[in-house]
């Protein structure tokens, strides 16, 4: 992660603040910073979203392409995550500097989406064994202000919600090979069910306490954090993946505490995201006139 140097005194100040349940910006340990979301910001992608969480800025674009399913799972589609850490975010990402972090983020997302009850790949299948949709989820990190995991997962979920997959109107069988006819009408499309799609919640252990949504400075003060993938099913939240970040280790009691906090925070976060997404859709309608974008 982008390293910010902190002096011992600053770290002490942050640490005591977390223990007091009053963080440097006035939040409690369980509060998130305000976020800003906009869907359909990239015109030439099937779906896109931009999420800004304080200083963390994430742009996600989803492209769908027709692919052949693997022989192992002939009835499943594919999803691939690619994270690009822009050198605009921090000079450290220049060249290959951001590669490690990018891989870590992409792997965590892949793992969180892996379970069939978290993300149903079968819905992406067109003709079992022959054709399926492959979703390319391209994530661009434009600015780093801490808590990348949460922001990336929220933005991805929003972009997938925004994704419109064109409908396949007909399949012509030609010598055992199916040829697909894709609808030309941009409004003749299917959507992806996002109810179960997991989000990631980073629970950061600072001192003896756990906090959600750590800022870049707070991340510096923690030795270990736990990324919890939270997926909702039948209005209940489940852990779909966990991943530890940082060099430290966690005691099993702390781990349990972190998981608990992660799941409850994840539930609220999920609800808030879905509410925002539906609100935006109802306000914008089917046709988007103009995007707000980055300026202003």
């Amino acid at each position: 992660m982008a390293n910010v140097a902190l002096s011992e005194a600053e770290k002490t100040f942050i640490l005591h603040g977390v223990e007091e349940d009053f963080r440097c910006d006035g939040r409690s340990r369980r509060d998130y910073r305000p976020m800003e979301l906009e869907c359909e910001i990239v015109n030439n992608a099937s779906g896109s979203a931009r999420l800004r969480l304080a200083n963390t800025d994430i742009l996600v674009g989803v492209k769908c392409e027709i692919d052949t399913p693997t022989s192992l799972h002939p009835d499943q589609g594919k999803i691939e995550f690619f994270v690009d850490c822009s050198a605009n975010a921090t000079p450290e990402f220049e060249g290959r500097g951001g590669e490690e972090l990018a891989l870590e983020l992409a792997d965590t997302l892949t793992n969180a989406y892996e379970s069939p009850s978290a993300f149903d790949l079968k819905s992406l299948c067109i003709l079992p064994g022959q054709h399926c949709w492959k979703l390319y989820v391209d994530i661009l990190i434009l600015e780093c202000g801490g808590n990348l995991f949460d922001a990336v997962s929220l933005a991805s979920k929003a972009a997938i919600f925004n994704t419109r997959i064109p409908k396949v109107t007909a399949a012509v069988m030609d010598a055992g090979e199916a040829e697909l006819l894709i609808s030309d009408d941009p409004y003749n499309c299917t959507r992806i069910e996002i109810d179960n799609i997991p989000i990631l919640v980073t629970v950061c252990k600072i001192g003896d306490c756990c906090v959600v949504d750590p800022s870049a400075e707070e991340e510096q003060c923690s030795t270990a954090s736990l990324v919890v993938g939270v997926s909702k099913r039948n209005n209940k939240c489940y852990v779909s993946h966990t991943h530890t970040v940082g060099g430290g280790s966690l005691h099993k009691d702390t781990m349990y505490k972190c998981l608990n906090l992660g799941v409850t925070a994840g539930a609220t976060l999920n609800d808030a995201l879905e509410k925002a997404l539906r609100l935006e859709e109802s306000r914008v309608g089917n046709k988007r006139k103009e995007t707000v974008g980055f300026l202003k």
């Binding site: 409690s28 998130y32 925070a265």
Partner: peptide
Amino acid sequence: MTTNVNIRLALDRVNM
């Protein structure tokens, strides 16, 4: 104690 989450839309961005 509940988690405070606030996701707002870019549409509602306050014009500073």
